[in-house]
Deep mutational scan, measured.
Amino acid sequence: MTEYKLVVVGAGGVGKSALTIQLIQNHFVDEYDPTIEDSYRKQVVIDGETCLLDILDTAGQEEYSAMRDQYMRTGEGFLCVFAINNTKSFEDIHHYREQIKRVKDSEDVPMVLVGNKCDLPSRTVDTKQAQDLARSYGIPFIETSAKTRQGVDDAFYTLVREIRKHKEKMSKDGKKKKKKSKTKCVIM
């Protein structure tokens, strides 16, 4: 069974824990209790493949930012979460993405942009803004509501699919490099 290491990042209060708990335990946590770091595991079937999701729910508070490099190193894919009623959390996505790329030393890291709290009427981040940002990053965008469960499975499952595509691409690139290195030079 394939294991996928997913990391949920975003500013404090955007609903990272609520999304994760909704996926794992099928219930909505409405009281806000700032996370330092929590880890969850769940076995699911995605596109006919049974897999184990190892999900790291991270601290959004700035005082825990020193811990970010460590979990970013171990993560295979990242859910970059903002709240649709919090423009600052949307603007912060850029910083999370840049930090992930720096730590992973790669421009090509599996990510999904997630606009959470889409059940709320007080939207300050337009869907088109988020779609445009995701398009500019070359990553999928999904709106979710941890409260109603809308888009929750889709967000995590899409990230797994992005990781699969990335692994497939990397193995193809690896095979191309191996083929090239088999060419021999004969000096007579």
Rank of each mutant, 00 (worst) to 15 (best):
E63N: 08
D30P: 11
I21A: 13
G12I: 03
V44R: 09
G13Y: 03
G48H: 08
T2E: 14
D30R: 08
I55W: 15
K16C: 15
G13H: 09
D47M: 03
D30Y: 07
K16V: 15
G60R: 15
E63M: 03
E3I: 04
I24V: 10
E62R: 05
Y40F: 12
L6V: 09
K5Y: 01
T2A: 11
V8M: 06
Y64Q: 13
V7W: 07
V7H: 07
H27M: 15
V9P: 01
V9E: 03
E62Y: 05
K16L: 15
N26H: 10
F28D: 01
D57R: 00
V8Q: 02
A11R: 05
V7I: 09
V8L: 05
Y32V: 06
Y40C: 05
T35G: 15
G48Y: 05
Q22L: 02
Q22Y: 03
T58M: 07
V14I: 10
T50P: 13
L19Y: 14
E62G: 13
I21L: 15
V9S: 04
G48D: 09
K16P: 00
L19M: 10
T20D: 11
A11G: 07
A59E: 05
I36D: 01
I24P: 02
H27C: 13
D38H: 02
K42M: 08
G48R: 08
D38S: 01
Y64K: 13
V8D: 01
V44H: 09
D57P: 01
S39N: 13
D54G: 03
E37V: 07
A59N: 12
L53I: 12
Y4F: 11
D54A: 02
V7P: 01
D30I: 06
T58A: 12
V9A: 05
L56S: 13
Y32S: 09
D38F: 02
V14H: 06
G60I: 14
D30V: 07
I46L: 08
V29E: 06
Y64L: 06
L23H: 13
H27L: 14
T35I: 15
L53R: 01
V8H: 01
I21K: 05
A11Q: 09
G15W: 00
V8K: 01
L19E: 14
D30K: 09
Y32C: 10
N26I: 03
S39D: 11
A11L: 13
H27G: 13
L52K: 08
E62W: 06
L53E: 04
G48S: 07
D33K: 01
A18W: 00
S39P: 03
Q22H: 10
V45A: 12
I36C: 12
I21S: 12
E62L: 08
V14T: 07
D47V: 03
I21D: 10
T20Q: 06
L52M: 10
G12E: 07
T35M: 15
E49Y: 05
R41P: 00
Y64C: 10
E62A: 11
D54F: 00
R41G: 02
I36E: 00
I24D: 01
T58G: 10
Y40L: 09
I21F: 15
D33I: 02
L6K: 01
K16Y: 00
L6Y: 03
K42N: 06
T20I: 05
K5I: 01
T58F: 02
P34W: 14
Q25R: 10
E3L: 05
E63T: 07
V9D: 04
K5W: 01
D54Y: 04
G10R: 00
L23K: 14
Q22V: 02
A59G: 04
Q43V: 11
G12W: 02
T58N: 08
Y64H: 14
C51N: 11
R41F: 01
S17V: 00
L23I: 10
G48C: 03
G13E: 05
K42S: 07
E62S: 10
D57Y: 00
L19T: 15
E37H: 04
